[in-house]
Amino acid sequence: MTIEYEDAMTLLKNVVRLGDNLPTHVFHNRFAKYFFFDNDICTSDDLISVTKLIISESFGYDLIASVFASSDFQYLGDLHMNEDWGAKIFSLSTEMNSSGDYGGLIILDQKKKWAIFQKTPVDEGVLGLDSNKSLETINTLIYENFVDCEIFKEWLEEKTLHDVEVVKSMGRDYLMSMIQNYNDK
């Protein structure tokens, strides 16, 4: 069952700290796990399909999410697990772009078990999950598209040239703030 507009807005206000962005904690409550991404959730088929896989592995298929524009928090519609997420998210973002909004998306599970936040397509985004179910069987797919606080900690040790470059490009303070705000351990 799809929730009504007022309920969707209430959901948004109860889950997301409107006006905040990463590295600040963008959700009112803490989730059990956080995964971060730097691709555009509106257009990256790989990111969308792995996100759907993570959510289905964690919670099953009986889910409905509400989708919002992150710039003005306009309710865009619902996303069902049985839909083609790539096509639906692309359609919602195209509709958003047609009205002159080139921001990112906020996608919230109507039962508040998971949430996705990306302020703009060029900003990092976060997927929060309230599940302690092991995702070990899909770790390779997850870590091809996401990072977590443990990876941020590894980067900050700067043991490889790649780590040094990542810390330089993202900023040590930014990464440390992400760990402080989202450490799930």
Rank of each mutant, 00 (worst) to 15 (best):
I89G: 07
L141C: 00
L53Y: 02
Y61H: 12
V166F: 11
V50G: 02
D78L: 13
F152G: 00
C149A: 12
W114G: 01
K185S: 11
L129C: 07
D45V: 10
D184Q: 11
V122I: 11
G19P: 07
E150F: 10
I48N: 13
G104I: 03
V26F: 01
K52M: 08
P121W: 01
N29H: 12
A8E: 11
Y182D: 04
I55P: 09
I41G: 01
G128W: 06
F31Y: 15
S70Y: 05
M176V: 08
I142N: 03
I3K: 12
D101M: 10
V166I: 15
R17K: 15
K33A: 10
N139H: 08
Q110M: 04
Y182N: 07
L76C: 11
C149T: 15
D123G: 02
V164L: 03
K185E: 12
H25G: 02
S91Q: 11
F117T: 08
E165I: 08
S56F: 00
I138T: 05
L76R: 11
M96P: 09
I142W: 01
D7H: 12
N132Q: 09
V16Q: 05
D101P: 13
I142R: 01
M96H: 09
A69L: 08
A69N: 14
R172K: 15
T160V: 07
L12C: 08
